[in-house]
Simulated assay, not measured.
Amino acid sequence: MATLKEFEEALRENGMQMALAILERLRERDRANRVVKPGRRIVGKKMTPELARQILELHGSTEMTQQEIAFKLGVNQGRVNEVIKRGKWLSGDQAAPEAVARDKGKARIQGAEVKRPRKAAAKTGATGGAKSPKSGAAKDKAGKSPKSPATAQLAFGDL
């Protein structure tokens, strides 16, 4: 099937200026009617065991998709998937992994969580650059270090 661009090129090749003018007029009309809407962002509710049970009930009793359930209940579609596939959020336990992760995320957003200090091994690795590699072990048979890039390249005429 030909694309619109290919169709336009064929019209140009055959010198069909009237058809090109009609096509351009149709494009301008479409541009005038085009409306750009911002993406729809849904602010999700806090996941609770009751909401998780509602999700499972809707999933089991209706033919609704996960996206439709998410829109109806005002939650993220990923949360609906987690409830259906993995049974998350069904217990009211505040020590459950999903509840702990949620609380950590909220704390990080609010800036309450202190940034973690860097590991000591990472600092010593940065300052320990004065060591030189052993010359016998670091070089291969050609006498090059293993980190040097290969110099052989193919050109178009080589094939």
Rank of each mutant, 00 (worst) to 15 (best):
M1D: 08
M1H: 11
A2K: 15
A2S: 13
T3C: 06
L4K: 15
K5E: 12
E6A: 10
F7P: 00
A10N: 12
N14P: 01
N14M: 13
G15L: 07
G15D: 04
M16R: 13
Q17N: 11
Q17K: 14
Q17G: 03
A19I: 03
L20F: 06
I22W: 03
E24M: 06
E24C: 08
E24Y: 06
L26Y: 11
L26W: 10
L26V: 12
R27F: 03
E28D: 08
D30W: 07
D30I: 12
R31N: 13
A32Q: 13
V35N: 05
V36E: 03
V36P: 00
K37D: 01
G39D: 13
R40H: 10
R40P: 00
R41L: 12
R41P: 00
I42S: 05
V43A: 12
G44F: 06
K45W: 02
K45R: 15
K46R: 14
M47D: 00
M47N: 03
M47P: 01
T48H: 02
P49A: 04
E50T: 10
E50V: 10
L51W: 01
R53P: 00
L56I: 04
H59P: 00
H59K: 15
G60P: 00
M64L: 13
Q66D: 09
Q67A: 15
E68G: 02
I69R: 02
I69K: 01
A70P: 02
F71R: 14
F71H: 10
F71A: 07
L73E: 04
V75G: 01
Q77K: 10
R79N: 13
N81V: 02
E82Y: 04
V83M: 01
K85W: 04
K85P: 00
K85M: 10
R86I: 00
R86K: 12
S91M: 06
S91F: 03
G92Q: 04
G92H: 06
A95W: 07
A96W: 00
V100P: 00
A101H: 14
G105K: 14
G105A: 14
G105E: 13
K106W: 01
K106S: 06
K106Y: 03
K106L: 12
A107M: 08
R108N: 08
I109G: 01
E113Y: 04
V114H: 11
K115R: 13
R116I: 05
R116Y: 03
A120V: 10
A121D: 04
K123I: 10
T124F: 02
T124A: 11
A126S: 14
T127Q: 07
G128H: 01
G129M: 08
G129F: 01
A130V: 11
K131Q: 07
S132I: 14
S135R: 14
G136K: 15
G136E: 14
A137V: 11
A137K: 15
A138T: 05
K139T: 09
K139V: 03
D140F: 04
D140V: 10
K141F: 08
K141C: 08
A142D: 13
G143H: 07
G143F: 01
K144A: 08
S145D: 03
P149M: 05
P149N: 12
A150Q: 14
T151C: 07
A155S: 13
D158G: 05
D158T: 05
D158C: 04
L159D: 13
